[in-house]
């Protein structure tokens, strides 16, 4: 599972970085979206990979940390997803405004 996850993150990051340095605004925004998926997976993996483990402990019971999944990265990922979604939406608006004002989808606002 570790191999699959790290390969997935690697593929997402490499495609994301490649798209990020492309000259068209649409490519840049897709690149940013792919990068943010990769980062979200990465945060998730930092809580160690566990399957079929509950993240919430029961009160009053003796706790063995090894039998639980770490809940903090899950909460962090949730926040990061929401913030990433909002900023991507905002970027999309700017992208359209730039397209409308300059008449081109080049990131510099003019064709080279």
């Amino acid at each position: 599972m570790e191999l699959v996850l790290s390969l997935a993150i690697g593929v997402l990051v490499s495609s994301g970085v490649w798209l990020l340095v492309r000259p068209r605004t649409y490519q840049v925004i897709i690149g940013l979206a792919l990068l943010s998926y990769a980062v979200n997976l990465f945060i998730f993996s930092m809580g160690r990979l566990r399957t079929n483990m509950p993240p919430i402990v029961e009160p009053g019971v003796e706790i063995d940390p090894a039998a639980f999944a770490d809940p903090v990265p899950q909460a962090l990922v949730l926040t990061a997803i929401v913030i990433g979604f909002a900023t991507t939406a905002l970027f999309l608006v700017i992208l359209l405004a730039s397209r409308g004002l300059t008449g081109t989808d080049h990131v510099d606002g003019r064709e080279p």
Binding site: L95, L101, T102
Partner: peptide, 15 residues
Amino acid sequence: VRAGLHYIAINLAAS
């Protein structure tokens, strides 16, 4: 808008 586009792209990557 042009300057803002660069500013936002850079700050999103930095985030």
